[in-house]
Amino acid sequence: MTHSLHRIGSEDTFQDDYVLISRPAMGINHVGCAPRVKRTLEIIFEEGPTNLGSLTTQENLTMGLDPQELIAKTEDNSPVMCCFHEREKVVKVLKRLKEEEIGLSVIVSGPIDNVQSICKEVGLKPHSANLSLGFHGSAR
């Protein structure tokens, strides 16, 4: 994985490479949302992400992040950032977030056809897309 939006390399190298980010909108629905962020983390940990990083503890799973410690330290403005290599896990996480009406914004970064088919399966209507238009300029 290179970046949550811009990827380097051929498309087949990131076919099953999904980044999932969830966060509240500051100033709109962030006050008192820590329990919902914690629940999101619990669901993600139960499904088993390939990796999950935290700005709060400044660690990630591969470095030995402790899920329970992270959940305990979660605050209203703690974003959730993780990645999966299995389509099915992304489907399950989204289904559970939808069923439990968590209400935090969620973005999934991945090949558009795959993400759209995941949304269809879960019963979600994708809202907006961020498209990578490539790189420019010179490195001197």
């Binding site: 209400g103 969620v106 558009i112 897309a129 990578s132």
Partner: peptide
Amino acid sequence: PSKNMKINVGLGR
């Protein structure tokens, strides 16, 4: 545009 896109799946309330 790249095939890889960042999609807001519309779960926010």
